[in-house]
Design a protein around this nucleic acid. Structure first.
Length: 370
RNA sequence: GCACAGGUGGCCGAGCGGUUAAUGGCAGCAGACUGUAAAUCUGCCACUCAUUCGAGUUACGGAGGUUCGAAUCCUCCCCUGUGCA
């Protein structure tokens, strides 16, 4: 008893409008999930996230295990309570770190040995360990421990990576099923527990992707993610892989494309039938002074905005655009003021969440006309 | 007034006879960021000409001098800091 997926409408082009009932929140999809790796969506307070309409955010197993430690978080009542986030959460498994910390880890069949990027200490992650940490954290959705395959990966490399991810998916699922009853909030939510998603890998090879999807579906996860994308491959390939994999996934379960994307990408994928997406881009770009607007990219630190009294995006009614000028935002960036990161992040998240809201409206069941 | 220590490109600061248009850092200008080792990284940053390779000009407080060659050595002057009067 973990998750209920209520499909409300499907369009001809494959787009889906649905609701995912999670213990902490009902999430309307397609949904964009802001990334809060270390227990914070960087620079944005939780109450602001709520007012922006964010219904589900991410946390990261690897980072929170290292600091403050999953046992600390367990003792603090779980991640929701620890960071004071009442809505839904999803934790990534650490699989992406197998990819991104390539200089700091060693992969074996058994698991991955990481050297901490914080202090160099050694830590061994297995699928079982990732599940234990994620159960301690207590997010509504957990992710199987995978290896995010890099790009480019030649055929033998993609096969080997897939073999590993599939074996780890099995182990993740078995360990998760055996231990999911331990989640701290189970009694509070009518015996509901966490959900576990499997992750499709296979690089850019369609048959590997297909094999991956089929094997995961057989294992019967609560939802399915497409991973290993947005790791440097051309956009057309990303699109190709998503198009190839989506039809292979069960229609009655959530589909999640991990780590995407630019504003036009998330809109495109959502209209194709992707239910969930997450990306660091809106928040990272914001901290680096790049705003996404209805008129395109806006590098707010550019000199040309020094005396621009207009709002960052004239077509945006977010709390930042309603109140502050481009000139002021640029000034904050120039001064290195922390508020720059906060305001820029709020706008970018508002923009991303706004895109999803529009797409959801478009995908909603239309009133019958006759 | 005397004694030390100094005056280097927008700022700070290396260099102390030749591979120096001058190391670094900051500021400035621009670009990149896709399940966050990222409030990070990359490029440019004297002037003029050239699309590129490049060419030329002016530069290390000022003026002289020594030397094949000076930001670097010498002389005088100006200025700054500290100490003593």
């Amino acid at each position: 008893m973990s998750l209920a997926f209520n499909l409300l409408n499907t369009t001809a082009s494959g787009g889906r409008r649905a609701e995912i009932d999670l213990p902490h929140q009902t999430v309307e999809t397609p949904v964009f999930m802001p990334v809060g790796t270390a227990g914070t969506v960087k620079a944005v307070p939780q109450d602001v996230l709520e007012s922006l309409g964010a219904k589900i955010i991410l946390g990261n197993t690897y980072h929170l295990y290292l600091r403050p430690g999953h046992e600390v978080i367990r003792r603090m009542g779980g991640l929701h309570r620890f960071i004071s986030w009442p809505r839904a959460m999803l934790t990534d498994s650490g699989g992406f770190q197998v990819y991104s910390l390539t200089q700091l880890r060693k992969v074996t069949d058994e698991g991955v040995r990481f050297r901490s990027h914080l202090d160099g200490s050694s830590h061994f992650f297995t699928p079982e360990h990732s599940m234990d940490v994620q159960i301690a954290l207590g997010a509504d959705i957990c992710m199987a421990f995978d290896e995010c395959t890099e790009y480019p990966a030649d055929r033998p490399r993609a096969e080997e990576s897939l073999r590993l991810t599939m074996a780890w998916a099995r182990r993740s699922l078995d360990h998760f099923r055996a231990n999911q009853h331990q989640v701290s909030w189970r009694a509070e939510f009518n015996q509901k527990t966490q959900s576990l998603f499997g992750i499709v890998q296979g690089g850019i090879y369609h048959d590997l992707r297909r094999e991956s999807a089929e094997r995961l579906v057989e294992m019967n996860f609560d939802g399915y993610a497409i991973g290993g994308l947005s790791v440097g491959e051309p956009r057309e390939l990303t699109l190709e892989v998503i198009s190839e994999v989506l039809p292979l996934l069960p229609k009655d379960k959530p589909r999640y494309v991990m780590g995407v994307g630019y504003p036009d990408e998330i809109e495109q994928y959502a209209r194709m039938g992707v239910d969930m997406m997450d990306c660091v881009l809106p928040t990272r770009a914001a901290r680096h002074a790049l705003l996404f607007t209805s008129q395109g990219r806006l590098n707010i630190k550019n000199k040309q905005y020094a005396e621009d009294q207009g709002p960052p995006d004239p077509n945006c009614d977010c709390m930042v655009c309603r109140r502050y000028s481009r000139a002021y935002l640029r000034h904050l960036v120039q001064c290195g003021e922390p508020l720059a990161a906060t305001l820029n992040s709020i706008h970018n998240l508002a923009y991303y969440l706004g895109i999803m809201q529009r797409v959801r409206a478009d995908l909603a069941p239309q009133p019958v006309t006759r």
